[in-house]
Design a protein around this nucleic acid. Sequence first.
DNA 1: TCCCAGGCGATCT
DNA 2: AGATCGCATGGG
Length: 264
Amino acid sequence: MEKRVADDFDLKKIAESGQIFRSYEDPSGSFIFMSADKRLLIGQDGNDIHMDCTKEEWDGFWAHYFDLSEDYAAIRKTVKQDPFMERAAEAGKGIRILNQDPWEMLISFIISQRKSIPAIRSCIEKICENFGEKMDGFYAFPTPEALVKADTEVLKYCGVGYRLEYIKDAARRVLCGETDIEGLKSLSDEKLKEHLLEIKGVGNKVADCVMLFGFHRTGASPVDVWVKKIIDEDYNGTDPFPKYGKYAGIMQQYAFFYKRLLKE
DNA sequence: TCCCAGGCGATCT
DNA sequence: AGATCGCATGGG
């Protein structure tokens, strides 16, 4: 189907903004986005987008996935008296915070620690190929049950390294209901974070990423090595993101994208 | 080859 | 509370 979007929307920036590890650029310039057991081929020409799904699938899932009910142009305009963030928001214009699968985000960001983004992507790809359900032309992200049962040696082969026990434990917790993903959705930001921090291998940074990208808590602003650089080099040691309140995570994405862009 | 990556947990002071 | 250290592995 085809559609026209009114708001900021840039598939390439979204795919390269570090929030998703299972996106691929097609030779045609279109993009593949995967989430849990779903996959979409989508391309854009300016504000005209076209995708290989039905209207029902778009309205029922992907429109929310791309966070189309939020007005990002308006959010960008809330930046004032902050030259670095104004440049970041302009550079990152078109980025949106995807509504991704919380379980997939939990495992993905547990894996992400001490890995480069290319390494994270290849590790997750291997895990899907080995433990994800085979769909029509791709592999789904593995279920908690699949990872609980996963052969340890094969998981190691996927490149998870010392995170093996973290992944196993997180999968066990979710499978037995000790971590109730659906239930977590109704918790306050504070309670949600508290719970996430109880999971082995989940510290402050990973918890914030799961909150932001899996539970769409846009007030969460993960502090990673890049954001640390921003804080030190551009803000003299003071974290500028919390002052943006419920948009802190969105500003963080603009800034993260911009800072990495500057280094190229 | 060497360095470091979207950090975390354990173990100290 | 805050500082330090080891950690498995892959990409640049």
